[in-house]
């Protein structure tokens, strides 16, 4: 049984679906956590404290990294197989078929944008927080405490180019999830003609919720640097 997850197309798809589902659940949690930063810097930093270099936070990070790795590795594997199955000669004339979303045909491209954004994000935050703690330092190269996430957010999103890059990143994730969420349910076998419109609607809602939750934090902190009066009513 163990090997149908590697040697059967439907098994491989199931791995894609389950790893995708895991990432969606994680990202929903991450998004909820971020929104806290708008309301209270202390509460946000308390969460950062929990998720510092404790054993459970590290275990969580490891599982997460594994999840991303599996999803990423399978994505490339499947896409490579699919290109081979398509053959060397392509159609001279192609169209977008009725009811087919652009995202559904470009999941790998969107995923690669997501992973590039993730690398940038890890360099901005993980390398200045958990990693600093792991190395036993009490201050990162910005002169901030590694558990002062709120200050790091403020610093990162005071730069317009970071805001722009993050928004592009979120947009790619949004597109990836508008297809990904219902596709993962279809792969797991949970779909029928009655449910398609509903599942696609749910996908749109989940993707938009995630996009909105992340974007609002980035934009809010940027606006604070442009218009300091906002800082007074914020954190």
């Amino acid at each position: 049984m163990g090997c149908f997850l590697t040697n059967s197309s439907l098994g491989r798809k199931l791995v894609m679906s389950i790893s995708g589902c895991f990432l969606v659940l994680f990202i929903l949690f991450h998004m909820s956590m971020n929104v806290v930063a708008i309301f209270s810097a202390e509460a946000y930093n308390m969460i950062c404290g929990f998720l510092g270099a404790s054993w459970y936070a590290l275990a969580g990070t490891a599982v997460l990294a594994l999840g991303v790795f599996v999803h990423f590795a399978y994505a490339f594997w499947l896409t490579w197989q699919n290109r081979k199955a398509r053959g060397n000669v392509r159609y001279a004339v192609t169209v977008t078929e009725k009811g087919v979303s652009w995202a559904s045909k470009n999941m790998l491209l969107l995923g690669v944008i997501v992973i590039l954004g993730l690398a940038l994000h890890l360099s901005h935050f993980w390398a200045k927080m958990q990693l600093v703690e792991l190395l036993g330092h009490h201050e990162n190269n910005l002169g901030l405490e590694p558990t002062d996430g709120a200050a790091l957010i403020k610093y990162t999103f005071s730069q317009w180019y970071n805001v722009l890059l993050y928004l592009v990143w979120f947009a790619a994730l949004w597109l990836h999830l508008t297809h990904g969420v219902w596709s993962m349910l279809q792969t797991a076998g949970w779909a029928n003609d009655t449910w398609y419109p509903r599942l696609k609607c749910i996908s749109g809602i989940v993707a938009t919720l995630i996009f909105g939750g992340f974007a609002v934090v980035v934009v809010w902190f940027y606006l604070q640097t442009v218009c300091p009066c906002l800082a007074a009513c914020g954190a």
Binding site: S9, K13, A85, G99, V100, S104, S183, Q186, N192, D193
Partner: peptide, 25 residues
């Protein structure tokens, strides 16, 4: 050597017999 389905739904749009991807589920 057929590929792995990614649920684009292009097949059902072009199928002359309008087979639904619900059957894939």
């Amino acid at each position: 050597g057929f590929g792995n389905c990614t649920n684009t739904g292009a097949c059902q749009a072009e199928c002359p017999k309008q087979i639904s991807i619900a059957h894939i589920a």
